[in-house]
Design a protein around this nucleic acid. Structure first.
Lengths: 271, 271
DNA sequence: GAATGTTGTAACTAAAAGAGTTACAAGTTT
DNA sequence: AAACTTGTAACTCTTTTAGTTACAACATTC
């Protein structure tokens, strides 16, 4: 029941409204005192709550002494709520789009992104601005799939993305074969260099599988902009345009791509 | 702007959240003070509001002094809100349906219905219970169309609904020809009898076009249950199962149907 | 028909959420 | 150094929603 009430509240009902409606659906036509018992709403409040539900067309009323109430079929009620929400959503989009001013190019060097579509969305923007080179690396399987369109965009611009994948699972499940040069380097080989080396240190930071921030992937365009995708609670991202960091990030990835060539490591596909 | 804020609030945003997001969409990437100016939110509050919007993935943040903010594209944000709402709605329906107990047959003699689908819905239930006869009359054009399915249901049961229509406009626009015996009697002829007659008095009440309650139609099944559809603010209805009122209501309608036959009044279609 | 319980209503209080304010330290610009 | 801007914390005021109390009208029981 609690869970049901929560769901209904997500749809915009107040707690008492949700309880009363849910109870009525469950027990069928009933009088106020029965609803109060079933729902836990204080009996005197049942009346005004049901009045409101009646006004909104969620329940029918049979006046008398006692007065009885009856829930309208859930499909109908919820469907109408949903339809109205969808309509409002469409209107909101149209209005926002129409008010939107010419976007001044954003010149800020670091952006914190939050939420999966925010990150994927920015990655696509990155792809669309690519002029010469697009390098990426991924450490997590499910996430890679969400970035398919990013690589498609890069290809549309006539550029072949280079994608380094760190775990076998990611590689197998990514299905990116025809989207660019896709390489697979096992995590063990990534971490087998002498610890003093800068690149090795960087790798240990980037590819570590524990700690508060878990790096899930990096995308770099033209050594000028990079998007670091990490997880902390949800998916987050840091977009960096400082003309230095992306160069280093690219070099780290390239270092491992070379490592892979040198040792003629597993290279599953190459377009 | 106010209207835009309202729309966003309907989607579940708080006022400040709506203002801040709308402003950001309108003016593009901006710092807190600019957002405060555009939105009317007190500047100190802009920070915590935007923090929340960032957490929900509605804006990106570029930390610094000053910190800048940027709205995620409205299509993406709103679409994701909408999708989540739809998901919740579906879950709610499923849960409600699964908890729903066996409906004890409702034995109550009078029900007050509110809202169009509540009324139409009950009318359909009425149709499904019809055993011998279904009589209806309508005084309003737009509404009739909403009851099409009701008459279809009656026909599915092998019964021909009799439908009396009072205004020419209703008749022309109703497109019910093949759904039953549809008759047209102009309002002038309805009201031309001697005022003393009971039926004439009844008609004056039912078919009056002014006053607080406007009767829009009546549906009667088997002279045992009737649904009076009227307007007062929105569409409302009274379902009556008292084994007397429906008989009278039916007689009133039949009286006019006979009147129509006697005077060989306009009878557009008859199946 | 007195006693007991139920129903409908009004008017309350308490708690929570949200809007709007004040004060201030730290940083930035002139 | 003075004047302004920025970020933060802790407020108050208002509205909304949850939960309480009191009671008259009605109905039921014995």
């Amino acid at each position: 029941m609690e869970e049901l009430v929560e769901r209904l509240m997500k749809l915009g009902l107040k707690e008492y409204e949700a309880r009363a409606y849910a109870s009525l659906v469950i027990i069928g036509p009933a009088k106020a005192s029965e609803i109060a018992r079933e729902s836990g709403i204080p009996r005197p409040r049942v009346y005004d709550v049901l009045k409101k539900l009646h006004e909104r067309g969620f329940v029918d009323v049979s006046e008398g002494n006692p007065t009885y109430f009856r829930a309208i079929e859930p499909e109908k009620v919820i469907a109408s709520l949903r339809d109205e929400y969808i309509r409002s959503a469409e209107e909101a989009i149209i209005m926002l789009k129409s008010y939107e001013r010419e976007r001044r190019e954003d010149w800020l060097p670091v952006w914190y992104l939050q939420g999966e579509w925010s990150v994927v969305n920015r990655a696509e923007e990155l792809a669309e601005k690519t002029e010469e080179e697009f390098v990426a690396t991924f450490m997590e399987p499910t996430l890679v799939l969400k970035f398919r369109r990013v690589f498609e965009r890069v290809r549309e611009r006539g550029i072949n993305p280079k994608i380094l994948i760190i775990t076998k699972k990611v590689f197998r499940e990514s299905r990116l074969e025809n989207l660019g040069e896709v390489y697979y380097l096992p995590i063990s080989k990534v971490l087998d260099g002498e610890p003093g080396n800068f690149m090795e240190t960087a790798a240990r930071v980037l590819f570590s599988t524990s700690g508060r921030y878990l790096v899930r992937g990096i995308l770099i365009r033209d050594s000028r902009e990079s998007l670091l995708v990490y997880e902390e609670g949800g998916i987050k991202g840091i977009l960096v345009k400082i003309p230095f960091i992306p160069v280093i990030e690219r070099e780290v990835v390239e270092y491992y791509l070379r490592k892979l060539d040198d040792r003629s490591s597993t290279c599953f596909s190459k377009t």
